[in-house]
Design a protein around this nucleic acid. Structure first.
Lengths: 210, 210
DNA sequence: AATTTTTTGTAAGTATTATTTGAAATATAT
DNA sequence: ATATATTTCAAATAATACTTACAAAAAATT
């Protein structure tokens, strides 16, 4: 139903719009203009209009956008109607924090399975999520039809575990390790590299930011 | 000393190069070609050469790049020579995980102070880092000359705490909250929006990814 | 010593993304 | 009703980033 060829940059902004629309909805706001929205989400108003227009003429000239209309439209676009189950691999410090992290709050995502090697937590429920032994990774992912994983394992084993996950049918990896994973081209990797983010930030402050 | 007008996209890749150069150095590798490097960090080799060339002619034709040369050059560029102290604000689940996260390992960054409201941890040492009461935020940041913060507080208080931090002289914020912070233009905000990343990933898989 | 191979550095071309501009449609005010 | 304000939408332009291509330089080979 939706456009397949919208720009990557636009797609990345959709969740930002979606989240703010939810807030607007909760406060009872009926309509919103691109200018108003621009200020809240810090994206240029023209960019917002163009982003929206990829999906058709969603607004009314001289009026703006109807919040509820827009919201239910984005809900569809972003697959917010059905729950997406994801698995978390590596229940260390960061893994634990993410298990507690409330992805579900204004999203459609739930961590429904976790994997680890540590006997102390394997086959138990941690933060409401069952932890399976890592040996069962491929098999469980396949059985539970999980297509997306969050990877929070030590760097040394990242590639080999990613391989197992791919073997289990995974199509998307949110990769918190510093390794640049090698995956088949139908698998998407989104890197979240915290050291990197910090270093880039510091670089810009020291150089560009006088 | 360094170029101030290198592309943003290049700057974001510098830490990636830097990290891999460290690995090469550790394994004793003397030289590296752009093609080899390209495979490891998954950036096109021509892009790498162009990125490097912003800083002068660092390589030798027919030879490649000398690992140690390159490494010490990037060490300078990325300010890896002196330690940068940063503060973490909000010692919840994610905050704790980040305190344990080893930024220091192959970086120059250390979390040297944390802030929270919880009496149970305030004025104690958590994971090796002193936790100060949030009331002292602005004052302590100023005293300790901390210019970069990691913000892991609840969304409701994010803006007001960011304001305090800015008042304390902060110039860079690694923002883990979903709020799009309003800051003066000489302050840089790097957003790490985990819900967003996951949703974008799922969106691409559902739509683009067949 | 001459030739071949490797590999950088950079220019030119392409693609992607963002911004500007202005006409058209709607709403609001007079 | 008419005029004026908003505000979307789309086209044109500008900026940014990526890719391709190749000459020049150095190294390796014959």
């Amino acid at each position: 139903m939706t456009a397949e060829n919208i720009p990557r940059a636009t797609a990345k902004r959709l969740p930002i719009y979606y989240r703010y629309l939810n807030i607007l909805h909760d406060t009872g706001k009926q309509r919103i203009s691109s200018t108003e929205l621009a200020e809240a989400v810090q994206v240029d108003s023209a960019t917002i209009r163009r982003d929206f227009s990829y999906f058709g003429a969603l607004g009314k000239r001289g009026y703006g956008y109807d919040v509820d209309n827009l919201l239910s439209f984005f809900k569809q676009i972003l697959n917010q109607e059905h729950l997406t189950n994801v698995a978390l691999i590596g229940v260390g410090n960061l893994g634990h924090a993410l298990l507690n992290f409330n992805f579900h709050k204004d999203g459609n995502v739930r961590i429904s399975a976790a994997f680890d090697t540590d006997d102390k937590i394997v086959n138990k429920i941690e933060d409401g999520v069952p932890v399976y032994p890592i040996e069962e990774l491929s098999h469980q992912l396949h059985d539970q039809q999980i297509k997306v994983i969050i990877l929070t394992v030590p760097a040394q084993v990242a590639q080999s575990i990613a391989d197992d996950a791919v073997a289990g049918g995974v199509k998307g990896i949110l990769n918190f390790t510093p390794i640049r994973l090698q995956v088949p081209e139908d698998v998407l990797v989104q890197n979240v590299d915290l050291t990197n983010e910090l270093q880039t930030l510091i670089y810009f402050i020291e150089n560009f930011g006088k």
